[in-house]
Design a protein around this nucleic acid. Structure first.
Length: 480
RNA sequence: CGGGUUGUGGCGCAGCUUGGUAGCGCACCUGCUUUGGGAGCAGGGGGCCCCGGGUUCAAAUCCCGGCAACCCGACCA
């Protein structure tokens, strides 16, 4: 018998990075591509993305947006039209200089995001206030030449959706920014079982070219923050650069106010890091490729009735709209399968063997609690939906408890240092970029956001003791 | 771009100090036995030892020069 510790992944407490890297590969979520920083998303990982996609796409459409597709290639000159935007993205651009066997007259950039090309098209399509708001979304890949890649969290090429909208005035555009924020929060909470802190980015952390950036911050189990989605109010910055104008009802020319917002495959990384444990992944049922796995146990003559009952159960459960997998591989022992499906994060496992059949029950194992219970065979189908819902809720509650236990308020440099060492810190801050930089240098932490729902408070900056800005505590953490 | 570590069958590693033509575990294939927490025994297949030079009768091993990957920092969804 192989020793368990030879097959198990490195425990989180021993080396969180190693735990994450091994888990992504061993759970067959993704693999590294041949070009540094690229990622192959394997079927099991891609299915999770599809489930995120479906949840989000439904909400995007329900709020009046339409999907479209814009080109991967952008003329370099277009990207340069919005000054802050170019500056923000220049270091991470992949540029095509040769094509068709010749050097190109003008280099072509592989999109790092699509504000510019979409702005260009919006300018063409919008002429009257009657054309507004224009609400577009695209599902696409983008490329950012990252210096330090990490599967799902930061890859050179990644998948996302990017919403782009144009509005007649600021109020409508700001409202739009919050519409996107709300459905991101829903997907995070209801699908990924992740509590998020929603807030504004500080000026230094804002998207290049944005007037306002709203972010959703998630705490993962090594005490660091992951930005799981962002929504930007772009003001008229891109409208000016791309001449996105319209004629108002009183005949005046006016600039559109635009927004953009995105959620990417990084979300999968957040789920892995926030929900996993030493045994591996724990998937929220609503994002699990397989919500239930059934492991038949037995051999030869014993196995025949087991297989029959397994098939009947699987059909019954599948008929309820639950994603179920029967692991009927004959060359592997039950113990091996238990460990493998636990590593891969399947929420519930049904074990069915001769002993169960004789008693008219099935054994139900819970990935979160590790508990095994028996359930009468004629009740199991009707119980599964509720059990999955309970699992989803319990997982959310666990993440919420964890976050609350790892969120501290800080009123001094020392308290700030202690708080960010283990999780989120809520502290008053002076609002100076130089102070944010010093915190980053000194503590490795950044201002994650100015929470929308913070209590009003004034006082001294926890780090430099100058008078506080923002009128409330802001969130600091070490971040991915 | 700095600092560190590592390149040896698919994966994880030993061998390198003290040169003699490659080994272990897992995985894989075959057979028999096995199946309620990572099965056992027996047999078997698979390696340009990262690349290029050099030293030597002889290099995975020593010398010089590259390259790559990963981890830790600076940039970022």
């Amino acid at each position: 018998m192989a020793k368990a510790d030879e097959k198990a992944i490195t425990p989180q407490s021993e080396d969180f990075s190693a735990w994450y890297n091994e888990l992504v590969l061993k759970a067959e979520l993704a693999d590294r591509g041949p070009v540094r920083g690229t990622m192959v998303i394997r079927p099991y990982g891609y299915r999770i993305w599809e489930l995120i996609h479906d949840a989000l796409d439904l909400r995007i459409k329900a709020t009046g947006h339409e999907n479209a597709y814009f080109p991967l290639f952008i003329p370099e000159s277009h990207l340069k039209r919005e000054a802050e935007h170019v500056e923000g993205f220049a270091p991470e651009l992949a540029v095509v200089t040769h094509a068709g066997g010749h050097e190109l007259e003008e280099p072509i950039v592989v999109r790092p995001t699509s504000e510019t090309i979409i702005g260009e098209m919006f300018a063409k399509w919008i002429s009257s206030y009657r054309d507004l708001p224009l609400l577009i979304n695209q599902w696409a890949n983008v490329v950012r030449w990252e210096l330090r890649p990490r599967l799902f969290l930061r890859t050179t090429e990644f998948l996302w959706q990017e919403g782009h909208t144009a509005h007649a005035d600021e109020a409508d555009a700001q409202r739009e920014t919050m519409v996107a924020t709300e459905f991101y929060e829903q997907v995070a909470r209801e699908f990924a079982a992740l509590p998020v802190i929603v807030g504004d980015k500080t000026p230094s952390e804002r998207f290049a070219g944005a007037v306002r950036t709203v972010t959703l911050e998630t705490l993962v189990r090594d005490g660091r923050a992951i930005q799981s989605a962002t929504s930007h109010y772009l003001g008229t910055n891109f409208s000016k650069a791309f001449e996105i104008n319209y004629t108002s009802s009183d005949g005046e020319q006016a600039l559109c106010h635009t927004t953009s917002w995105g959620m990417s495959t990084r979300m999968i990384g957040a789920v892995i890091m926030a929900q996993g444990d030493d045994k591996g992944l724990i998937l929220p049922p609503r994002l699990a490729p397989y919500q239930i796995v059934i492991v038949p146990i037995g051999r030869d003559a014993d196995l025949v009735p087991v297989v029959t009952e397994t098939g009947r159960l699987a059909d019954e459960i599948r008929g309820l709209g639950i994603r179920v997998k029967v692991d009927d591989r004959t060359t592997l022992s039950p113990g091996f399968k238990f460990n493998e499906w636990e590593l891969r994060g399947v929420p519930l496992r049904i074990e069915l063997g001769p002993r169960d059949l004789a008693a008219g029950v099935a054994t139900l194992a819970n990935r979160l609690t590790g508990e095994k219970t028996t359930v009468p065979l004629d009740e199991i189908g009707q119980q599964m939906s509720a059990r999955l819902d309970e699992f989803q809720d319990a997982l959310y509650q666990r993440a919420l408890d964890f976050r609350e236990a790892h969120t501290l308020t800080a009123t001094s440099k020392e308290e700030l240092a202690d708080a960010v060492a283990t999780g989120f810190a809520l502290a008053l801050h002076c609002g100076q970029k130089s102070c944010e930089d010093a915190i980053k240098e000194d503590l490795g932490a950044t201002a994650r956001c100015i929470p929308l729902d913070g209590e009003p408070e004034e006082g001294r900056c926890a780090y430099c003791d100058a008078s506080s800005a923002y009128g409330k505590r802001i969130l600091f953490a070490r971040a991915y």
